[in-house]
Structure formats: C-alpha cells, structure tokens
C-alpha cells in the first residue's frame, strides 16, 4: 500500500533536547498512534512533520512530496492541535466562514452535520464552551474540508469517555476509505488500543519502536516473577524490566515462549500502558 506520510531520520536539536533520527511510515487506510511520556518528542515530531519548525536533518513527504514543494497538499491534510486555535469570541458559524474561504473543498453541509452530531450550538461563542466542546469543534473543522490525512495532537484529551468513544467511531469511519489515514498522538493509550493499527513509541526524543498493534497485542507479554525466575531469563528474550515491591515485571516480545519456559511465573498480555511504563521507567536490555 502506498505511503501517505513518510518520515525519514527526522532530527531537531534544541538546548537540552534532541529529536533524534525518527523514522516511520503511515500507509493508507490506517491509524498510527504516537505515544511517549511528556517531553518525549511527540509534539515536536508533529510540528516538524507539518513544517512548523525547521528540521535539522531528515525528510518528510506526504504522498511522496515535501509540503514546502507542494503547498496545495495542505488541502488534503486536516490538523487538530491540543486546544482550540480560534479566538474565544468567534462562533462555530464564523469559524466555518473563515475556513470556507481557506479550503477549496470546504463542505458547509458536512460541517453543519458535524455541529449537529456533536451537539455544538452554531452561534455560541467559543469562550462559553467547555473543553470538550472546543475539542469537538476543532475535529468538526478538521473533517469538513474533506482531508485525506488527519493529524491529531492530543485531540481527544479534553473529552469525557463517552464522547471519546464517539470520536473514535468518527475516526474509524474516516479510515474506512483506504486513501485516508490518521496520525494520532495521545496520552490515553486505551484509545489507541481501540483504534490504532500501528504504534510508534518515542522516549527522550528517540523512537524505540514502530510496530503493528497486533504484534504488540498478540506477541508482547509481561512476565511477573520472583528474583529466581528473573535470574534465569535469557536477556535475548527480555525487552525491559522493572523491580516492583514484591516482584519483577519483565516485558518480553514472545509471551507464548515465556509461558512455556517460565511455568512458575504469571505471563500477562501486555497493554500499551504496560509497554510504555516498562520502556520508560524500567531498565532495558542492551
């Protein structure tokens, strides 16, 4: 399948932080989840992908073209940042008027349908809206110019679980079209477990992995064992570990193999949270 977004060796240096040669590809018809602790480089990656900051190294192409060389491609990209980007005295109708003037493919009927679907009053000023309503307005605005690629930077963080679930349905509808994809950074890893096809983990500016969610879900496991079992484990079978109060939690890439080898240990399925915590807070095999 053709890549919609291809990021190669993306590097950006700041004082005290470096986004270090991050590479990943987002194919058509899928959702890529970008995870990592605060300050891991998720927002920096998204900003560099969108040319909001200057890259020190690397390349970013959408449909094989750099945005700077093909600015019309921005028509095909919808973006939702963390927080609303419109001044607080604007209303959803005015936001629609502004964006209609910007996008050739702006669809008023679609925008109105999203406003109704998300229960957003068309003439209410943004300053009178809750954080969730603002997030929904941004998502409605991003979808209404009929983009092919959505970039969501913590877009669902202001929503309650019910509304988040509704939004995830919207995103899943969006990627039903094989020409559409989503790059989505989120702290709420359960959301990504529901919808993401790929997970990219960033830690301290470096990409630790980019894998399909199914690989993580069906193969990765957490071995919960005592010191004796931990001592027996082959370091080649271990990705990361962490000493808890009464046990060792060990992230392994092949949980079935671990279940066969370590009969005395409990081997759980690894959630994305488990993987994130063990990689970030635990120690890693060399």
């Amino acid at each position: 399948m053709d890549a919609i977004l291809e990021v190669k060796d993306l590097t950006k240096h700041y004082d005290g932080f470096t986004l270090d040669h991050v590479s990943f590809t987002v194919p058509g018809g899928c959702i890529m989840g970008l995870i990592g602790e605060n300050g891991a480089g998720k927002s920096t990656t998204i900003k560099a992908v969108l040319d909001l900051i200057h890259r020190d190294e690397g390349s970013v192409t959408f449909w094989g073209q750099e945005l700077a060389a093909a600015p019309d491609r921005k028509e095909d990209i919808g973006v939702v940042f963390d927080g609303i980007n419109f001044y607080e005295t604007l209303t959803p109708v005015q936001v629609g008027n502004i964006l209609r003037a910007a996008y050739r493919r702006w669809d008023d009927r679609l925008y109105k349908s999203y406003l109704e679907r998300f229960s957003l009053p068309a003439h209410k000023e943004i300053r009178g809206m809750s954080k969730g309503m603002k997030a929904k307005l941004c998502i409605a605005a991003a979808l209404s110019h009929r983009p092919k690629f959505l970039i969501l930077d913590e877009a669902t963080s202001g929503l309650d679980p019910v509304m988040r679930d509704d939004m995830l349905d919207v995103f899943l509808e969006f990627v039903q079209d094989e020409e559409h994809s989503i790059l989505m950074s989120s702290h709420i890893t359960t959301d990504l477990e529901k919808v993401a096809d790929y997970i990219t983990l960033l830690h301290q500016g470096r990409m630790l992995f980019c894998k399909t969610k199914d690989e993580l879900r069906y193969h990765y496991g957490v071995v919960r064992c005592g010191a004796a079992t931990f001592g027996q484990m082959d370091s080649a079978d271990v990705l990361a570990w962490r000493k808890e109060a009464y046990q060792w939690d060990v992230l392994v890439p092949d949980k079935e193999k671990a279940r066969r080898l370590y009969k005395n240990a409990v081997v759980d399925d690894a959630t994305i949270d488990d993987i994130l915590l063990l990689y970030v807070k635990g120690e890693r095999s060399k």
Partner: peptide
C-alpha cells in the same frame, strides 16, 4: 488563541 500554527497548516 495559538492561531499562527493553525494558519500554517492551512493552504
């Protein structure tokens, strides 16, 4: 409003 980054992702 944090408008400028948003403007830059518009066409």
């Amino acid at each position: 409003a944090g408008w400028t980054p948003y403007a830059l992702v518009m066409p």
